[in-house]
Computed example of a mutant assay.
Amino acid sequence: MSSLSKLIRNENMKIYRRPRTWAMIGFLLLAIGLMSGIMKWDAGKGSQTDWRQQLTQRNDQLQQQLQGLAHPGDKEHLEDAIKLNAYYLEHDINPNRLTLWTYVNTSASLIILVTILTVIVAADMIAAEFSWGTVKLLLVGPASRTKIMAAKYIATLGYALLLLVIAFAAAFAAGGILEGFGAISEPHVTIANGVVHEGSMIANALQKYGFAVVSLLLYVTMAFMISAAFRSSSMAIAFSLLFIFLGNSLSELLRGYEWVKYLLFSNIDLTQYMEGSAPLRPEMTLSFSILMLVAYYAVFQLVAWLLFTKRDVAA
């Protein structure tokens, strides 16, 4: 077994032997259970009006609105909505019906909770060694500081992956138990350029999870950098969570300025490029945001590596 794999195993032992780790997993499962229960309860309170009648009435309203519009973009948007509703009626698809995929797609919004739980671990990985005084024991061993840092980073990403798998599996199971597994092969219906397309529900769900994983990766890497900078677990966790909670609000507040597109928080949510969404600024593109995120990721890794490998440890 290589020295890196031994270090990774050692870091995993540190993570999973702590009661806090399992408490966070339990908290994630509880959150998904509450979300599923609230969705089921809320659906039971809904109107019992026939969904076909609702869609027919909605299309009549949209047709009336369409006659009074002159802007091509607005007209195209309404025409697409009318075509989509007509497709639902023609193929007997109730777009408002709860299915197991509704639970899975909604659970993607809880990945921010996965991010927060992983950031707490990441921010503690380096800083805790200094707080406990165990960093000296690590550094006197044969492994280089680079390998030690890499092992901590890989172990943290492994924990993040575990939380993601648990979130997806729990939401899928909850949806199947509450709504049945009959909709597992149901298509994902979208419209683009006036043409209705049927896609895969599992592919759509994985796309949402995949985009959310990007923000998870960036925030975890940022937490590692902060952990290396502040040799205090509490400060590392506090600063990391502060950036998570205030970053998006800051970008929204400054969206009127062109330079806001260069901020990390303006690019970290790639779901803004999914169909039916709009980017923070009209000139932003998916390729631009990916380029910015790669640049930030490289800077975070470089700064964290420099701070951990080059700084002296007090005797």
Results as ranks from 00 to 15, higher is better:
Pro95Lys: 07
Met35Phe: 04
Ile148Pro: 00
Gln65Ser: 12
His71Pro: 00
Thr156Cys: 13
Leu100Gln: 06
Gln54Ile: 14
Asn105Gly: 02
His71Leu: 14
Trp132Asn: 15
Phe130Ser: 09
Ile111Cys: 06
Lys75Trp: 08
Leu163Arg: 02
Gln53Glu: 14
Asn96Gly: 12
Gly141Gln: 14
Trp101Arg: 03
Lys152Tyr: 06
Ile166Arg: 05
Thr56Asn: 13
Gln48Gly: 09
Thr134Gln: 09
Val135Arg: 02
Tyr87Arg: 03
Glu79Thr: 15
His91Lys: 12
Gly158Arg: 08
Ile38Gln: 12
Arg52Gly: 13
Tyr153Gln: 03
Met39Ala: 10
Gln63Tyr: 07
Leu28His: 04
Leu62Glu: 08
Phe27Gln: 03
Gly73Trp: 02
Thr115Asp: 04
Pro72Asp: 13
Gly46Cys: 05
Ser36Gln: 03
Leu34Ser: 11
Ala155Asp: 10
Pro95Val: 13
Ser144Glu: 07
Ala155Phe: 03
Ile148Gly: 01
Met35Asp: 08
Gly44Glu: 10
Leu161Cys: 12
Glu129Ser: 06
Ala169Met: 06
Trp41Thr: 11
Ser107Met: 10
Ala167Arg: 01
Gln53Cys: 09
Val121Ser: 01
Ala70Cys: 07
Trp132Met: 07
Leu84Ser: 03
Leu161Met: 12
Ala128Glu: 05
Asn85Cys: 08
Asp124His: 03
Leu30Val: 14
Thr99Lys: 00
Ala81Leu: 14
Leu69Pro: 03
Ile112Arg: 07
Thr56Ser: 10
Tyr103Pro: 02
Ala167Ile: 06
Glu129Tyr: 03
Asn96Trp: 12
Ile116Asp: 02
His77Glu: 15
His71Asp: 15
Phe172Asn: 02
Ala127Thr: 11
Ser109Trp: 07
Ile148Phe: 05
Leu29Val: 15
Trp132Ser: 12
Trp101Ser: 01
Ile111Ser: 04
Lys45Asp: 08
Leu139Gly: 07
Met35Lys: 05
Val135Asp: 02
Tyr159Trp: 08
Arg52Lys: 14
Ile166Cys: 03
Tyr88Ala: 09
Leu66Asp: 09
Ala151Lys: 06
Ala143Gly: 04
